[in-house]
């Protein structure tokens, strides 16, 4: 049996942003530009894949009552490692994303996949699931970022093609909700048709 569906599931059927509606805090806050959204998505994916792998490995040995503290500790470890790596090698990205990197620890997607998937599946499947959901999250955040950056700043990935300030509301929180809402409608309409 092909395991390909573990990746596509995370991308379409279990899309964390538009279907599961998880991890809304970074989704709304960091998607002010396409690049910010992409970086945030990749950072989350890094933690998601590694924590899924480790949790699927240790889950059989962990007593049931302390499983959540164990998962959170594992996730927090990877987030700290990611934070140090970003500070060392991509200081610019670390600066723009700032406090949203440590906040990945409490991202529902990461704990959700640990609790809902990784602790009952094999290492390989959990890794694929992490990659799938990670890609789903990254693409969703990038798309929201693209729409908000075009409407709000008149640019795309920092490349300005409309002079002037753009519609400021789209850079701010209300624009985030609007764009998220409309994209969610489109995405689910497309899913319903299939």
């Amino acid at each position: 049996m092909s395991k390909w569906h573990f990746i596509t599931d995370g991308f379409v059927k279990n899309n964390p942003t538009f279907v599961l509606v998880l991890g809304m805090c970074p989704t709304l806050a960091t998607t002010t530009s396409a690049l910010n959204g992409l970086e945030m998505g990749l950072a989350t994916m890094f933690v998601l894949v590694l924590s899924n792998i480790v949790i699927s490995l240790v889950a059989p040995m962990v007593p049931d009552k302390v499983r959540i503290p164990v998962y959170i500790t594992v996730i927090a470890t990877f987030v700290t490692v990611l934070q140090l790596l970003m500070q060392a090698f991509t200081p610019a990205a670390y600066e723009t994303l700032g406090l949203f990197i440590p906040l990945i620890v409490v991202n529902c997607i990461v704990l959700g996949r640990a609790e809902g998937f990784a602790n009952k599946h094999s290492v390989g499947e959990s890794a694929l699931d992490g990659i799938g959901v990670g890609i789903g999250f990254t693409v969703s955040l990038t798309v929201i970022g693209i729409v908000r950056e075009i409407l709000g700043s008149g640019s795309l990935f920092g490349w300005k093609f409309i002079p002037g300030d753009g519609i400021l509301a789209f850079v701010m929180a209300p624009g985030a909700f609007l764009v998220l809402g409309y994209l969610m409608v489109l995405f689910n309409k497309y899913l319903a048709k299939k």
Binding site: V62, P63, D64, V66
Partner: peptide, 28 residues
């Protein structure tokens, strides 16, 4: 499946996890 949730198991498991995690962070 999962180890029984006795006090000894829980304490051992949490201690082990914390030790390993701190080691990883330290190395990083």
């Amino acid at each position: 499946m999962a180890a029984a949730s006795t006090l000894k198991n829980m304490a051992l498991c949490l201690t082990a996890v914390c030790l390993v995690c701190s080691a990883v962070v330290g190395v990083a």
